[in-house]
Amino acid sequence: MALNTPQITPTKKITVRAIGEELPRGDYQRCPQCDMLFSLPEINSHQSAYCPRCQAKIRDGRDWSLTRLAAMAFTMLLLMPFAWGEPLLHIWLLGIRIDANVMQGIWQMTKQGDAITGSMVFFCVIGAPLILVTSIAYLWFGNRLGMNLRPVLLMLERLKEWVMLDIYLVGIGVASIKVQDYAHIQAGVGLFSFVALVILTTVTLSHLNVEELWERFYPQRPATRRDEKLRVCLGCHFTGYPDQRGRCPRCHIPLRLRRRHSLQKCWAALLASIVLLLPANLLPISIIYLNGGRQEDTILSGIMSLASSNIAVAGIVFIASILVPFTKVIVMFTLLLSIHFKCQQGLRTRILLLRMVTWIGRWSMLDLFVISLTMSLINRDQILAFTMGPAAFYFGAAVILTILAVEWLDSRLLWDAHESGNARFDD
């Protein structure tokens, strides 16, 4: 018995066209964080690309023209004298008006014999932002004059995390709450300039795509075929072959399989920071003279006294001054041990922890910024005066060393310790 099946006739004509040209192939790229070699397709503007294995951002879609970056830099340069030299806060102490600005706080630190601690604050609040705007201006002028731009481009990517104007702005709020127990506070004209400078700096850093600047100024022929001998440069993120001198053909720094002496430098910085954190938390970090009496505060006791007036601000200072430094030390110690013992479990967790400490590390400088600003506000000789204690130097040095330890660690070593050939990683 035959089955009668109805015929289905399409209502619209289906047209099949042959592909007349070869589909576009992607360029081969190595991930600078996990060293995976993959094919990167062509990316349009405002599109980002991520590593298929570790999800690290390979290409950032946010990109401004150099002219727009230069305009932002010149605007920031105009704001800087007002943000640093004009009063941020006014207080009335014992019937006398006192003005506080950024430069005055750094000068008070240096004047009291601790120039190293003052230079830490100076670099993060004044030096690094000033280098940022002058570097962008150098790129703008240098591109037109045919100057060598490689050193500036190499420095810009590392400079971003040292620009800490946003953290200093939080420190202004913390210092205001600490001082309000002794005097009446009012915002100064410099505060508005400083807030504007923070906003412009944040926007500029978020749109400063150094890798795209490398592509514009020093374009290189990408690798179009897969080759395990391809290496990625950690300076400019170019994937290719080393030249005859073993250097990256684009930025001219040595092109090595792994960062040289990464573990040794990381261990040295980490152990030194552990040693410095002990006096930083045991010795007094601030000293207040009130009517001839002397009151010393460690980091913890200062947080407890701050909690009596504002528990939320005390929580912020606790996280930045105690929780973050010790968390960074514990995480980095764990990561280094996992590399030495070739741990194969929990790779995803370790990668996330490394990215976390990379982002939060700079916030530990908050305590030094609060001390710097408070020193310029309260300084009335023996009637009422505020000065920093010996722990300030140890704390600042420990924070900087932990930042350097994270920067010096080559994250690809975590993958080397893991089993080879993993296309995915999980716990």
Rank of each mutant, 00 (worst) to 15 (best):
414 L>P: 04
215 E>C: 14
309 S>R: 03
183 A>C: 05
207 H>M: 14
197 L>V: 07
87 P>D: 05
64 W>N: 06
375 M>E: 09
42 E>F: 04
130 L>A: 14
180 Q>H: 11
201 T>D: 05
37 L>R: 06
30 R>W: 00
46 H>Q: 06
423 A>F: 15
77 L>G: 10
286 S>G: 11
412 R>M: 01
253 I>F: 03
187 A>S: 12
402 T>W: 09
347 L>E: 12
209 N>H: 10
222 P>G: 14
58 I>A: 08
236 C>E: 00
234 L>A: 13
55 Q>V: 08
167 I>A: 04
396 G>Y: 01
66 L>C: 06
7 Q>Y: 05
287 I>E: 06
87 P>N: 05
247 R>M: 13
100 A>H: 01
384 L>T: 02
127 G>R: 00
236 C>G: 01
265 K>R: 05
237 H>F: 12
235 G>A: 09
353 L>K: 10
134 T>F: 14
291 N>I: 15
195 V>H: 07
100 A>C: 07
65 S>H: 05
197 L>T: 10
338 S>W: 14
16 V>E: 06
185 I>V: 04
33 Q>T: 10
374 T>V: 11
284 P>I: 03
386 F>L: 02
104 Q>G: 05
187 A>P: 14
124 C>H: 02
260 R>M: 10
41 P>Q: 08
167 I>V: 14
120 M>L: 03
369 F>R: 00
339 I>K: 09
68 R>W: 05
53 R>C: 09
180 Q>M: 12
393 F>M: 14
204 T>L: 09
113 G>P: 08
49 A>F: 06
314 A>T: 12
418 H>C: 04
166 D>C: 15
202 T>K: 15
285 I>W: 00
266 C>V: 12
3 L>D: 11
320 A>H: 01
426 D>L: 04
403 I>G: 02
245 R>K: 12
246 G>A: 12
92 W>T: 03
305 S>F: 09
142 G>A: 14
24 P>W: 09
178 K>F: 01
325 P>F: 01
268 A>N: 06
425 F>Q: 14
277 L>H: 01
154 L>K: 01
377 L>G: 01
338 S>E: 08
231 R>Y: 11
362 R>G: 01
57 K>Y: 05
57 K>P: 07
223 A>W: 12
348 R>C: 11
91 I>F: 02
419 E>I: 11
151 P>M: 03
103 M>H: 03
314 A>Y: 11
165 L>E: 09
143 N>K: 15
24 P>G: 06
337 L>W: 14
419 E>N: 13
153 L>W: 03
43 I>L: 06
61 G>Q: 13
426 D>Y: 14
423 A>H: 09
66 L>Y: 08
36 M>L: 08
298 T>A: 15
23 L>P: 03
7 Q>D: 07
86 E>V: 06
202 T>Y: 15
76 M>P: 05
286 S>F: 03
96 I>P: 03
302 G>V: 06
33 Q>L: 10
345 Q>A: 14
140 W>D: 09
343 C>M: 14
273 S>H: 04
29 Q>T: 05
23 L>D: 08
199 I>E: 06
66 L>W: 05
225 R>M: 13
377 L>D: 00
148 N>P: 07
371 I>E: 00
292 G>P: 03
294 R>A: 06
79 L>N: 05
162 W>F: 10
187 A>L: 11
125 V>G: 08
327 T>K: 13
230 L>Q: 14
421 G>H: 05
190 G>D: 02
267 W>P: 13
21 E>N: 07
287 I>S: 06
14 I>A: 09
68 R>C: 02
325 P>T: 04
69 L>C: 11
23 L>R: 08
238 F>Q: 11
233 C>S: 05
289 Y>S: 02
45 S>D: 05
243 D>Q: 09
304 M>A: 08
407 E>V: 11
107 W>E: 15
309 S>Q: 06
180 Q>W: 12
276 L>I: 11
199 I>R: 01
134 T>L: 15
233 C>P: 00
78 L>S: 13
59 R>T: 06
66 L>E: 12
4 N>M: 08
352 L>W: 12
335 L>Y: 03
418 H>F: 12
16 V>L: 05
214 W>E: 05
142 G>L: 08
288 I>R: 00
32 P>R: 10
62 R>M: 06
334 T>W: 13
326 F>N: 06
67 T>I: 13
329 V>C: 12
140 W>R: 09
215 E>V: 13
275 V>W: 10
179 V>K: 01
24 P>Q: 07
392 A>L: 03
93 L>E: 01
14 I>E: 10
324 V>Y: 13
173 G>Q: 04
126 I>C: 11
218 Y>M: 05
206 S>A: 15
389 G>L: 00
99 D>S: 12
349 T>Q: 13
230 L>I: 13
57 K>A: 04
83 A>V: 04
257 L>V: 12
77 L>F: 05
49 A>G: 05
2 A>R: 06
345 Q>H: 10
264 Q>P: 03
158 R>H: 08
242 P>N: 13
220 Q>A: 11
165 L>G: 15
59 R>L: 10
230 L>R: 13
50 Y>L: 15
11 T>Q: 07
75 T>Q: 07
23 L>M: 07
65 S>G: 09
105 G>D: 01
155 M>I: 04
